[in-house]
Amino acid sequence: MIPLPLAFGAPLLTAKIRTVPEDFQVDELPAFEPSGEGEHLLLTVCKRGANTVHVAKQIARWAGLPEMGVSYAGMKDRHAVTTQRFSVHLPKRVAPDPALLNDAEIEVLESTWHNRKLQRGALAGNRFKLVLRDIQGDAGLIDARLAQIAVRGLPNWFGEQRFGRDGGNVPAALAMFQGRRMRKDQRSLLLSAARSALFNQVLAARVEQGNWDSALDGEVWMLDGSRSVFGPEAWSDALAERLARFDIHPSGPLWGEGELRSTGDAAALELGAISDEQSLQLRAGLEDARLKQERRALRLRPALMQHQWLQPDVLELSFALPPGCYATAVLHELGPVQDVGGVTSGD
């Protein structure tokens, strides 16, 4: 794994996070309102100290269903207090009392019927509340850095949890590409890790050059809040205005087979950043797996960003992120933060 550069200068603090699970709170932002009818029971669950798969298994046992009968929009970390939706397929619309699920780890906050299964990725984003403790650093400089992030945004890194313990998913992906057999679920995880590693290398090159949030010749643009892309096209005042108001973002490649969409300087930078031997092996493996070329925004701007000092060495941060974005990207721009409870998550 390459060390990720900082977009705003030298680190300003050292700190700890998740001394207790309540120091890392995540609330899933739903993408739709329940229909109130149908054969899928939507449960809004607050969990503490339990991962999403574990809770889904508990719900399946409660409903008397196989695990495939329970769905969720995104994974949430174990070492945290998180709120998220699950859907339970009950075609006869007969369900046990949701209160029977409640224990020290799980609390059902709401239950209602819906006419469709909850699909992966069916969320508008996540709202975070993080508490950093044992902070060493100048509070005034930290305040200024957070204000800068709120105005300018920050690089849209894939978080370290995408790469597994000690970054082991990328070496495992290389082994898989060289013929090692993997289970289907492992294969999907390792393909994602390989793609994410290549994207981070491209983004690192643009951060180092200072153009992660500006235009290069041959740029491909991504619409904010969407996976839709357009370009390349000639730079114009209209594009400059849209970039300034965060309607569009520069993008980088999620590698796969097919022609790279970017051209000119953008394509040269992208290919140059992932031309080392390991990257070439990852690229070939992703192409052989028949993944298609896709794009991801290079820039992220947290919404509703606020912070307050609870004590001279304790800082509370709150913000919302789109799906697939990582709270660790915000923390990275502040300085080294020791995760006492484990690695954080994003959907």
Rank of each mutant, 00 (worst) to 15 (best):
Q209V: 13
E233A: 12
V131A: 03
R162V: 07
E160R: 04
A244M: 10
L239P: 01
P253V: 12
A197T: 06
I142N: 00
D185I: 12
Q136P: 08
I135T: 00
A197S: 13
K184L: 13
R227M: 14
G231N: 04
E241K: 15
S192N: 07
L146I: 05
I248W: 00
A172W: 07
S192E: 04
V207W: 01
F177Y: 04
A139C: 11
M222P: 03
M222T: 08
F163W: 05
F199D: 03
K184G: 10
G153K: 00
G168E: 15
E208L: 14
L130P: 01
G218I: 07
N200S: 11
R127F: 10
Q186Y: 10
R227Y: 11
H249V: 03
D185W: 08
N200D: 11
G125K: 01
K129F: 11
G218L: 08
Q148V: 07
V202K: 01
R145S: 02
G167F: 05
G168M: 11
R242M: 12
A139D: 07
A173W: 00
L191D: 03
V207M: 04
F128E: 02
W235T: 14
S251R: 01
D134C: 11
W221F: 10
R133G: 06
Q186D: 10
A173S: 05
S228G: 15
D217F: 06
R227S: 14
G168L: 10
L118Y: 02
R195N: 09
D134W: 04
G210D: 07
D138H: 09
R245M: 13
R187G: 08
D134S: 13
L123Y: 05
D134A: 14
R133Q: 12
P171G: 13
M176S: 09
A122H: 03
G153A: 01
D138Y: 09
V151M: 14
A197C: 14
R165E: 15
R152I: 12
D166W: 14
D185K: 09
Q209A: 15
L189V: 13
Q209T: 14
R152S: 15
R227F: 10
A144P: 02
Q148G: 08
F199C: 11
I142V: 13
K129I: 15
S188M: 10
M176G: 05
G210L: 08
G231E: 03
A205T: 09
A194K: 01
Q201H: 14
G179F: 05
Q209K: 14
A215H: 03
R116I: 06
F246T: 00
F163K: 05
L203M: 09
S236N: 04
S188D: 13
A147D: 08
P253S: 13
S228W: 12
G218P: 05
I142C: 03
L118G: 00
R181A: 14
F246D: 01
G164A: 11
F230E: 10
P155Q: 09
G167C: 09
G159Y: 00
G167P: 02
S236R: 04
V229W: 03
